[in-house]
Design a protein around this nucleic acid. Structure first.
Lengths: 208, 208
DNA sequence: TAGATTGTTAATCGATTAACAATC
DNA sequence: TAGATTGTTAATCGATTAACAATC
């Protein structure tokens, strides 16, 4: 199903479609037209149809899209139909917050472990997890089928920690460290640079 | 200085330039050419020059860009030369983590207060702040020159809380609630939808 | 069937890249 | 001055929107 190449812009819109479909489902809507969805989402109907047709013809002429079916298709495309096991590196405030983020569980995203290099944090309870030392990483990743590592650590250790995790087989990095990771070709990172995001607001406050 | 209209794509790249300039400064680099910067950042030199020239000619032919000057200019454009006062709504894990986020202070972003609707959290110490009740919002905003409100709350109350804050004069919203805010024209929100971001990774794991 | 709405091709728009004259 | 590198215009590329034939 991944035909030719899907542009990054399209990929980044998929979770938003998924979110609106979830809302429609909660409203017990059975079907939705691209026209009606476009009004709700504030994008063009044309874009919705183009985006979806990158992955297949999920609609039906004269009818529109079946809400349940389309949501299931999007979930499948987004990889939400199979569970993913996640670890968090860094048990500071942010790491702890992410460990308890309830939105994940509902999407098959399971936080299996949390680690910290600081011995004084090791053993601390975080939700129903216990902070583990970095020395436990290798075995834990192997034994728990971990596919995503979250980096909730300062920028200085980020590169070497990422390299270590790569060595243990991790290929997907969710990076909150304020630095861009330089990873091998077969790995990918999604950056959440919080201060970059906040600067969009200070920019706007400054430049109207 | 905000000539014509700056595209969103350009605006979103500015913090990344700023970050690389900071690194160059730490390396005591005095000047940088668009060519050398392009190599470091993995973008084209042409794009760098185009982007910067939206705001003015900060370089010099035959020399390149002065690191200190360019960083200062970018900081000014991003509104980092004047302090911004921020409040955080929601003193859960995420709100607390954001309250303690040290990257902000260095950029003139000052967290002045944190609020929660849950009475059992009110009075709790978070760093050197104390959680305040929602009833204190109005006066606090007026007395502390608050320009940005961070929403670290569930999606259900997000719309009404944003409306309340708008009523108190807030025009910039940093939104972590998993919903898109519908704000009046003269306000702006920057969304940080964490699970949307994580889904970029599950997508990738699924579709290579 | 007729009406509605998709899937898809074509047209437009905007963003990125290339090229080069201006100039330090 | 000659060499280097910007600022900026022109060319290309890609993404968005419009249009409409296909079809449920």
């Amino acid at each position: 199903m991944p035909k030719s190449v899907i542009s990054d812009a399209v990929k980044r819109r998929l979770p938003r479609y998924y979110r609106f479909l979830t809302t429609l489902q909660e409203e017990k809507a059975e079907r939705i037209s691209s026209e009606e969805l476009s009004r709700r989402m504030g994008v063009t109907a044309s874009q919705i149809r183009q985006d979806l047709n990158n992955f297949g013809g999920f609609g039906q002429q004269g009818y529109g899209y079946n809400v349940d079916k389309l949501k299931a298709e999007l979930g499948r495309i987004l990889g939400l139909d199979t569970p993913h096991h996640i670890i968090i590196i860094g048990a500071g405030n942010l790491g702890q917050a992410l460990a308890g983020y309830s939105n994940f569980q509902t999407r098959g995203l399971i936080v299996k472990g949390i680690f910290d290099a600081n011995p004084s944090l090791v053993g601390k309870r975080v939700g129903d997890l216990e902070v583990m030392p970095m020395s436990a990483l290798k075995d834990f990743i192997r034994d728990n089928d971990i596919s995503i590592a979250t980096l909730a650590i300062p920028k200085e250790p980020a590169a070497s920690v990422a390299a270590e995790l790569y060595g243990y087989g991790i290929r997907a990095f969710w990076n909150f460290a304020h630095v861009d990771l330089d990873l091998p070709e077969d790995a990918v990172s999604e950056n959440v640079h919080l201060s970059d995001s906040l600067m969009q607001l200070t920019y706007w406050l400054n430049n109207g």
